[in-house]
Structure formats: structure tokens, C-alpha cells
Amino acid sequence: MRYLLKRLVTTVLVLGGVSILTFSMTALTPGDPAVAALVEQTGHQPSEETVVAFREQHGLNEPFPVRYADWAIDTLGGDLGQSYSSEQTVASMIGQRLPNTVELAAASMVIAIAIAVPAGVASAVNPGGRVDYAAQFGALVGVSMPNFWLGYLLIIVAALWLDLFPVAGSGGLDHLVLPAVTLGSGMSAVIARLVRTTMLDVLDAPYIRTARSKGLRERIVVYKHALRNALVPVVTIAGLQLSYVLNGAVVVEAVFQRPGLGTLLVDAIFARDYPVIQGVTLLVGVIFVLTNLAVDLTYRYLDPRIDRRGEPA
């Protein structure tokens, strides 16, 4: 319990840091952010009055700490502000796009694990063998492959040549397959390498010998006794792969022209729509920090040796 409390406090601190970082990003704009935003919107240099009106409308005349405080308080209430370039609120824009990105992230995670766990186990069961060598080589290629290229490669082969899936856009399951494979295969490479290392460790443990001595089938020894132990670190890293998902989603959504958080962010950046940029960045940071927290807690659940004594029986 004490650990949990401490963990929560640091999480809140990091979230505070994330929000300051996110908000102060605007200050990086060369010149006046209001002018920059207006130029992107109207396509020409704005008049003095428009700038003043714009500043007034979006509360840009306040000093920085006041603006941050206002924004932070509104954000805690779920109000991320008003988009510069569209009539919508930032929250509702995010609300429309978020499900698409979540869908992509979940699907690619499933694909990644479905590839990585069997591959990593197959590698570890016979280390140094042909399967191991091939899997390791494949994993390294997977890590090295830029996912935007993999995306186009899949489009060329599976969509244009074989006509199996639609090229781009979003919609049903068939629109999800290629983006998810693109994102998932890169991730699977990292996870597979990790599964291999931890499985190699675990397979050497005395309790594996015990399991074999009971007369268990090797398959059960590997998939029940060994894998369950190997999963502990794997879950950690798989959770931390969320970073990869979010990084990748930006690019993969652009490749497949899927309306999601990634495309929303990129569009907002080009339109200099600062409230949207801040909102999306903050959301990404929050998701990431909370995932790390969740991973940490899962880890404790999966490994009964950790922190069970602290709990009342």
C-alpha cells in the first residue's frame, strides 16, 4: 500500500511536469503565435485589428503563468479549450478521433503478441538452432524497418497487386488489417527478442526441471510453467511498447490516411492550431504515464513474490 501511494505521488508529479512541458511548447514559436496561427488560417499577413481581436478572443494577453493556470484548471475539468481553426472544442475533436487510434493500437498489440510469443518461445526452446537464428534475424529486420515504408509495401502488395484490402481510410475491419499489421510487426520484433531472453533464463530454473520430473509433456512445461514466469518482464516491456504504438500511430495513420490522434496532431501542427496541439500532446503524455503505472501494478499481480506481504491477509 505504501508503495502504491508513493507511486501515485510520483505519477502526479510527472503528470504536472508533462502539462507544463506541453503548455510551454507554444513559446517555441518563432515570432508571435497569434500571427503565426492567423497566417496559417487565412493565408496572408493579418491586420493589426484581427490580431488584437484574436488575442482577446483566446485570452492570449494574460501573462504566461496565468494562462497556464487557467488552462490547467480547465483541463482538470475536462475542457481543453477551443480550436483555432475549426468551430469545435478540442475535447470533442479528440473524442471523435481517439476511438480510431485505440482500435489501431489494440489490434496491433494483439498482432504483435500473437507473432512475438510463439516466435520467442520457439527461439528459446532450441537456442542456436535454425529456428532461433531465423527468428532473431527476422526480429532485427523488423526493428530496423521504418513502418512508413512497411505500410507502403503492404499497400503495394496486398492492396494494389492482390486487391485483398482497401488502400486507405477507415471503416470496417478490412481497413484495420494493413495498418495494424504494419504497426504490430515492428512491435512484435522487440517483444519477441524479450520473450526469447526471459524464456532462456526461465528454462534453466530448477522448477522447470521439477515440472519435467513430474512427467509433464514438454509443451505444458514450456507454455505453462516457463511462459507464465517469463511473462512477468514481457508484460512490462509490452506495456512500455505503448510508446512505440503512439509514435508509430502518427506515421501509420498518415500512411493509411486514417483519421486518428496522429493525423489530428499533424494537421494541427501544420495549421498552428495550438490548443489542439496542446490537447493531443497532453493526452499522449497522460496515456503514457498511466500505462506505465498500470504496467507496474500488473507486474506486481503477476509475480506473487512482490509486495504480497504488505497486504493484510
Partner: peptide, 24 residues
């Protein structure tokens, strides 16, 4: 270290994207 934590709290490309985008 808190600064490091905060930086590592962001997916690198997303953060770089935002910074580069705002800089132009």
C-alpha cells in the same frame, strides 16, 4: 532526474514532432 522522467514520459517521435512542428 524529474526532468529526465518527464522527457521519457513522452513517446519520443510525438514530442519531436510537436517541437519541430512549432519551430517550423
Amino acid at each position: 532526474m524529474r526532468l529526465v522522467d518527464t522527457l521519457l514520459a513522452f513517446p519520443g517521435i510525438v514530442l519531436a514532432l510537436v517541437i519541430a512542428g512549432i519551430l517550423g
